[in-house]
Simulated assay, not measured.
Amino acid sequence: MTTPLQWLFKAFDIFVVVGMAVMSLLVFTNVVLRYGFSSGIPFAVEVSRVVLVWVIFLGSVVALAKGAHLGVEALVVRLPRTARFACFLVSYGLMLWCCWLLAQGSWSLTVIEWDNVQALSGIPVGAIYAAGLAAAILMALVLLLDLWRSLRGVLPAPWSGVEHVEPLPVVSPELISEKAP
Rank of each mutant, 00 (worst) to 15 (best):
M1R: 04
T2Y: 07
T3P: 02
T3F: 04
P4Y: 07
P4C: 03
L5F: 14
L5G: 02
Q6W: 05
Q6H: 12
F9V: 01
F12Y: 15
F12N: 06
F12G: 04
I14W: 13
I14L: 14
V17R: 04
V18R: 00
G19F: 03
G19E: 03
M20D: 00
A21W: 02
A21R: 02
M23H: 03
L25H: 01
V27I: 15
V27Q: 15
V31M: 13
V31S: 12
V31H: 06
V32R: 06
G36Y: 08
F37Y: 12
S38T: 09
G40T: 13
I41S: 04
P42H: 05
P42L: 14
P42Q: 10
P42Y: 08
A44C: 09
V47H: 03
S48A: 15
S48N: 04
R49D: 09
L52H: 07
L52Q: 15
V53Y: 03
W54M: 04
W54G: 08
I56G: 11
I56Q: 01
G59R: 12
V62Q: 13
L64R: 08
A65F: 01
K66I: 00
K66G: 07
L70T: 10
L70K: 01
L70M: 11
G71P: 00
G71L: 02
V72K: 02
E73F: 07
V76K: 03
R78E: 14
P80W: 05
P80G: 07
P80R: 07
P80T: 05
F85N: 01
A86W: 02
C87T: 10
C87G: 12
L89N: 05
V90F: 14
S91G: 13
L94K: 01
W97V: 11
C99E: 04
L102C: 08
W107C: 01
T110S: 10
T110N: 05
I112P: 00
I112F: 11
D115I: 00
D115T: 09
N116K: 08
V117N: 07
A119P: 00
L120V: 00
G122L: 10
I123V: 15
P124L: 04
V125W: 03
V125S: 08
V125C: 02
A127V: 14
A130F: 14
A131L: 05
G132I: 10
G132H: 07
G132S: 11
L133W: 14
A136D: 06
M139G: 01
A140S: 14
L141R: 01
L141S: 12
V142Y: 03
V142D: 05
V142H: 04
L143I: 14
D146E: 15
L147A: 06
R149P: 00
L155F: 14
L155W: 09
A157E: 09
P158I: 10
P158D: 08
P158H: 09
W159S: 09
W159G: 03
S160C: 06
V162C: 01
E166W: 12
P167D: 11
L168Y: 06
L168M: 11
V171F: 07
V171Y: 09
V171E: 09
S172P: 00
S172H: 10
E174A: 11
L175D: 11
L175Y: 07
I176T: 11
E178P: 00
E178I: 01
E178Y: 04
